[in-house]
Design a protein around this nucleic acid. Structure first.
Length: 307
DNA sequence: AACTGAGTCAACCGCGGCCCC
DNA sequence: AGGGGCCGCGGTTGACTCAGT
């Protein structure tokens, strides 16, 4: 047994009256009032001084993950989900670091989101959640879908946010001329009642954008023309979404149907689904029997609406 | 209505790093 | 230098909820 374990054991024996498990309202109130008067930190001392029969660790966790006033409640927005995916691809399981970029969200919440939602999807796809295949799938399928959600939620009228974005950063033409890859939209998947089709564009610098007509950029073209620069030590959260200007490094030559990307598009005849997606450019498509096709048969691919 | 299995998330645990003595 | 205390992080657990049967 390690020295730490011994210490913990003796500590537990000495302080067997310490409470564990769910916090009561009285305990919450004690903690809140104590921190309001004296501030946070020095958690072991705080726990004793506040009259809480809890470890300092437990107090800290309760405060940071639940009681702190600026904590956001409710589901993660598509913007937040996208940021998590992006930051996780960059930093891995550095939850606290990721949380620094999501104001009001805790590392615990982000960790739970990743384990319950993201890893579930990976399991259903039979891919290891940390693998390159998974990262590719996230970038090529999940992120575009989130972008589409963001786009829809940001633009109650067809022109408003799109027009704004068209005027931000680089000109649309500059991006168009340098584009090297794109997401195709399969006409067979569209319907007359669907929103205008969009094409996701990546330029040479792997910057990500969408547009409804790649040949003649219309005023509603949707440009992410600035690289997503994320500070290792943020003073304030990035405002990429507030400004509607962002870009994502993304695998080249990804094809998807943006109108039918989530479960809406997956809950259909698996054979027609296979026709819809052009997977030929994926390196992970060529291995074995094709994991993606197997997953299609399971109708479990990227259940975005459950996220 | 009762049961069950899956999903969610608050809380706990173990470990490593930092600081102080 | 090294031992102890504290803090923070990431992994894991288990209670609770809810949908499906």
């Amino acid at each position: 047994m390690s020295t730490i374990a011994k210490r913990d054991l003796s500590c537990n024996e000495e302080e067997s009256e310490l409470r564990r498990g769910p916090w009561t309202l009285e305990e919450d109130s004690l903690l809140i009032h104590y921190i309001a008067r004296h501030g946070e930190g020095r958690w072991n001392m705080l726990a004793k001084s506040a009259g809480l029969k809890r470890t300092g660790k437990s107090c800290r966790l309760r405060w940071l993950n639940y009681l702190k006033p600026d904590i956001k409640r409710g589901n993660l927005t598509p913007q937040e989900q996208l940021l998590i995916l992006e930051l996780h691809s960059k930093w891995g399981n550095r939850w606290s670091k990721i949380a620094q970029h999501l104001p009001g969200r805790t590392d615990n919440e982000i960790k739970n989101y990743w384990r319950t939602r993201v890893q579930k999807q990976a399991r259903q796809l039979n891919i290891e959640s940390g693998s390159k295949r998974f990262i590719d799938a996230v970038k090529c399928f999940w992120m575009p879908r989130l972008l589409q959600k963001m786009e829809q939620s940001n633009s109650p009228s067809p022109h408003s946010s799109m027009t704004t974005m068209m005027n931000l950063g680089n000109s649309g033409e500059a991006s168009m001329s340098s584009m090297s890859s794109s997401f195709n939209i399969n006409p067979s998947m569209s319907s007359s009642s669907s929103p205008p089709q969009r094409k996701f564009i990546m330029d040479d610098a792997n910057h990500f954008s969408t547009m409804s007509n790649p040949i003649n950029p219309s005023p509603d073209s949707f440009q992410f023309s600035q690289p997503l620069e994320i500070s290792e030590h943020p003073k304030s959260p990035p405002n990429v979404f507030e400004n509607n200007v962002c870009s994502y490094p993304i695998q080249d030559n990804c094809y998807l149907d943006t109108n039918n990307y989530g479960m809406e598009g997956i809950n259909m005849d698996p054979l027609s689904a296979m026709d819809t997606y052009d997977f030929s450019q994926f390196d992970f498509q060529t291995a074995g029997n094709g994991w993606m096709l197997d997953s299609m048969g399971d109708s479990t691919l990227w259940n975005m609406d459950a996220m």
